[in-house]
Design a protein around this nucleic acid. Structure first.
Lengths: 243, 243
DNA sequence: GACTTTTAAATGTCAGACAAATAAAATCTC
DNA sequence: GAGATTTTATTTGTCTGACATTTAAAAGTC
């Protein structure tokens, strides 16, 4: 684990990369304690603040955790799916908002991924997950529900669908796509009429999953995608020629 | 943008979160310059090293970039798809290696996502992308190719397939799944026989894409998934009862 | 006016110090 | 001696102040 002394700038970045590489390559294993900050500054021949900046970079990526006190220090962190979720959601959200990804592109990606889960979910969904979906549908039908709450329930519904595939890697990959779209979805005003339509489709999906009918889930998701895009198109229209 | 003075520990984490929230919520827009470190330490009533640790956390997530010199400082960064790729690959790789995700689970997720791209790719793939895939197939057929190089070419082939969908969000989401699996794939020894089989399937996929036959691409991907799992199973067998 | 030099502002780095937390060791009490 | 308490050492968290380096803009020079 060494750094290049010829490039003097960004020592903390270099040190972070060196430690990161050591973790990824398996030289440092989970829960192993890194040398203390003082020892690291000795090893790398830099000051402690510089080492600390490097460690904070790694902490930001959940690669390490730190503990104070005697026998404390920095430990290689076992990244949890939750950590990975939240990081991916942050990244995806910014990516969508900053890079001017069109609603259609994001929507297409989201439903493509969701359709990828559908057959597995039809096979494996538990009755618990089905109950969650039914509960969310019930919530969505409540009158007086705000648009934000409706969207949040929509996300919960689709997460249950994805979790039904019983593949944590898929759940993780999709969390980003689904949750990152929420700000975009929140721009849509859900009228009573459109909610009714969406709820009907959600019910169709739940029914199809109950019967383990993968083809019908898929077909309904296609319908839902088309309808979602149509709603977004309507919003775009309104912006173009406002009342 | 404030921090809670009641929780004295981890000031830099709190400050990082405050700035992160400001960026995500749009209070700080792309390319906007943050206050200087001195000003930030004034605002948050902390020392400059603490502010710096916070900024390094954000830099690790590519949320900001810094420039030295007069009129330098920290600027809100427009996250590029490339940045997002590499972050996701890092996270996914660690997630797979640390959480003991089974090969089957990872493989299932990867092919499910890839199959989600297939129909779009069949519609939209350019002749360039097709040429890339052919070139990689040619490379895979070279005798004397190392297993690692074969794997790398395999990844390049599948990335071309995914990029054919012409949806950067999908490409981004999938990059993690495909690239993160490479270490797992590298454990497989590709015999001349198995390479032949894989190349044949790759050729089938390329042919089907050339004819824009989505159904055949999908069917071949299913075959490829089954074959990949079989190879992994053979490796597992060997480990169980070594010669 | 074009080129060079100076200057000021900002990040990058360092050294040394103290505070706070924490676990282990030492001490005390019964 | 066992258990409770205190002390101590280690480690991270934070602060202060300083200097180095980079860079753009201002000032100066021809």
């Amino acid at each position: 684990m060494k750094i290049d002394p010829r490039k003097p700038a960004d020592l903390s970045a270099q040190i972070a990369q060196a430690i990161r590489d050591a973790i990824i390559s398996g030289q440092l294993i989970v829960d192993e304690r890194l040398p203390s900050e003082a020892e690291l500054s000795d090893q790398f021949q830099v000051s402690r603040p510089t080492v600390r900046e490097a460690l904070k970079r790694l902490a930001a990526q959940s690669l390490i955790r730190t503990q104070r006190g005697a026998s404390g220090g920095a430990f290689v962190n076992r990244i949890s799916f939750e950590d990975a979720y939240s990081q991916q959601i942050t990244t995806s959200t910014l990516l969508l908002s900053m890079n001017a990804v069109s609603f259609d592109t994001a929507c297409e990606a989201r439903f493509a991924l969701e359709r990828a889960c559908a057959p597995l979910s039809a096979q494996r969904r538990t009755s618990d997950q089905l109950a969650t979906m039914r509960a969310e549908i019930f919530r969505q039908a409540q009158p007086g529900l705000s648009d934000e709450a409706f969207c949040a329930s929509d996300v919960a519904f689709h997460r249950a669908l994805v979790d039904g595939a019983d593949n944590p890697v898929l759940s993780y990959q999709l969390a980003g796509a689904v949750e990152a779209m929420q700000p975009l979805m929140n721009m849509i005003t859900f009228t009573a009429r459109s909610r009714e339509e969406i709820i009907a489709l959600h019910n169709q999906i739940a029914d199809a999953l109950e019967q383990r009918d993968a083809a019908k889930v898929d077909a309904t998701l296609v319908e839902l995608e088309a309808y979602t895009r149509k709603l977004a198109e309507d919003v775009a229209q309104q912006f173009r020629k406002p009342a």
